[in-house]
Amino acid sequence: MDLDYDFMISDLPTVLAGLPKTLILTFWSMLFAIAMAVVFGGLILSRVPILKQSVIIINTFIKGVPLTVQLLFCYYAVPYVAKGCNGFLGYQYNPRHIPYFAAAVFALAANFGAYITDVVVSSMRAVDRGQYEAADAVGMNKFQGITHLIIPQAAVISIPSMTNYFIWLLKGTALASIVNVVEMLTTAKISAADGYQYLEAYIDAAVIYWAVCAGIEFMMGRFEHHIGFFMRQPESRVRPISS
């Protein structure tokens, strides 16, 4: 198999230069996704009559539609939205600089927000009921109990699922390359266009994605181990009778 190994090695820094853009896209999408998930999850948990049902309907629809379709929809819709926002908060509409990055962030955040809502709801429900009673017993009111006792525990419970979705999102940002957002895959594509060495550039990109995902998984595992100390069972001094 004739791969251009020299190009593959020399192109690696070029592709790596696209990594920060991928990470920035991931960061903003994750931030808005979590914000959306917290609001939606709060509405579901607080059982506000009509809002709860509408949140569930919105989430179900978002989950049933491919991310690709959502990205393309936002890509085509963003010029209209940008035109409508002309003059709003000092934003100047410029047809030459349409905010495709913001469109991609919106699509990714909406998509992953719907999934992360489930994580928020199930983590909050996973906290032991006794903790609420404990908050009552030490004289905290409901708000204090939730902010001081329940949310910190739910956050730790949700770390493994959040890590999963974070990695999914990092991989999902590669799809943003189809809507004119310059991130790592687009960088690889552009760098390969001169000599039609696409395969080499894509292998570079794959290696970087692989390394980043493996690194994040490892780090979050350590982090959870570190922060979740209170959930570990204390080591029993009595050896259990082996069966």
């Binding site: 189809i178 894509y202 794959a206 994605y209 995902c213």
Partner: peptide, 14 residues
């Protein structure tokens, strides 16, 4: 690990 750690679209391209 490779197939779980890289985006599907990159695998399709490769």
């Amino acid at each position: 690990s490779f197939f779980r750690g890289t985006p599907g679209i990159v695998q399709i391209y490769i």
